[in-house]
Design a protein around this nucleic acid. Structure first.
Length: 320
DNA sequence: AAAACCTTCAACCGCCTAATG
DNA sequence: ACATTAGGCGGTTGAAGGTTT
């Protein structure tokens, strides 16, 4: 035989605690302590299981629990510790006196994680996300494609208002799919299955016919995005047939070359058939790296750490 | 004013590990 | 050594309150 069985949870109360229950639990623990959570509810006159009592005590009733908003220092500590420990909430809580693991976990999920995502930082790796920009380039390409269709309409190159309207609607749909892709990619809850679902949906757009854009429009569009970055669907292939993306302009490999040099098509581009990786370096180092001559033309300035930026509400406004 | 939508967070669920007989 | 359970932990849920339309 092992340990004696835990309390029979059948018929025990669940849900929010009443002030009376809190009072019973508090007074019992203050008098007798909590040597065994299993027998505590019965001795304290509570119709709860020991697990529920323990949770209520550790997360709410314990006298040394700090209440109220997290301070700037606490936020900084959580960010730093999370970058090292990950979702080890109890380990993080040990460095924040008066804060419970549950409270820190909630604070992370409702505030800090969102801040990181808003800044394009992967909340799990604490590294900047570059795949977001890949999707962005696709959106730009589609937006330009629609612009061209609209222009062709004005120039009278395409006959039939209805045809164009339908094509524009289809493109709108493609764009919304890509927006979904961005959300999926940046979501911390992204799973292989959610990505597969999206891919399936994208594949279902196979019936979409690409707009018949005259070849005279090709150069204008070709500088926007390489073929390798388009979704691999028949829609993509159709675009290839019309030469919209057949000019392979991928010749750069500097993913970070996001300077405002519109004359060079290599901005925002990555080598053909490659996916831009998340930058493989600690967050603080990345801040220093992006101010190197390759990226900003030599105007190197010491940048604040991500955690400092995150805690600066004014600076955050710049990213909003 | 009210319905719809969003955010927060206390509490639960289920898994894992250490403890126990 | 093994079976079994308590305690601990992280993930998730859903009610309540707040905000927007």
């Amino acid at each position: 035989m092992g340990r004696p069985p835990c309390c029979d949870e059948n018929g025990l109360k669940k849900g929010p605690w009443t002030p009376e229950e809190d009072e019973k639990l508090m007074s019992y623990i203050q008098k007798h302590g909590h040597a065994s959570w299993r027998v505590l509810p019965e001795l304290a006159g509570l119709n709860r299981c020991g697990k529920s009592c323990r949770l209520r005590w550790t997360n709410y009733l314990k006298p040394d629990i700090k209440r109220g908003n997290f301070s700037r220092e606490e936020e900084q500590t959580i960010l730093q510790l999370h970058s090292i420990l990950g979702n080890k909430w109890s380990a993080i809580a040990k460095h924040l006196p008066g804060r419970t693991d549950n409270e820190i976990k909630n604070f992370w999920n409702t505030h800090l994680r969102k801040k990181l995502i808003k800044m394009g930082i992967d909340p799990m790796t604490h590294r900047p996300r570059t795949d977001f920009f890949q999707s962005l380039s696709q959106l730009i390409a589609l937006a330009n494609l629609r612009q061209i269709i609209e222009r062709q309409l004005w120039d009278g190159h395409i006959e039939g208002l209805q045809t164009v309207a339908v094509q524009a609607a289809k493109l709108e749909y493609m764009q919304s799919l890509l927006h979904s892709a961005v959300s999926i990619v940046t979501s911390p809850t992204t799973t292989t299955s959610s990505l597969n679902t999206f891919t399936t949906e994208l594949e279902q757009t196979n019936h979409l016919c690409p707009p018949q854009v005259p070849s005279s429009s090709v150069p204008e569009l070709a500088v926007q995005v390489p073929h390798s970055q388009m979704p691999s669907t028949s829609f993509d292939q159709e675009i290839g047939k019309t030469n919209l993306f057949s000019n392979n302009i991928v010749n750069g490999n500097e993913w970070c070359s996001m300077e405002a040099d519109n004359s060079s098509p290599k901005s925002l581009l990555v080598p053909e058939n490659s996916i831009p990786p998340l930058i493989d370096m600690p967050v603080q180092n990345f801040c220093n790296t992006i101010s190197t001559p390759n990226c900003d033309g030599g105007n190197s300035m010491p940048l604040p750490s991500w955690s400092e930026i995150l805690l600066d509400e004014e600076l955050m406004g710049e990213f909003a």
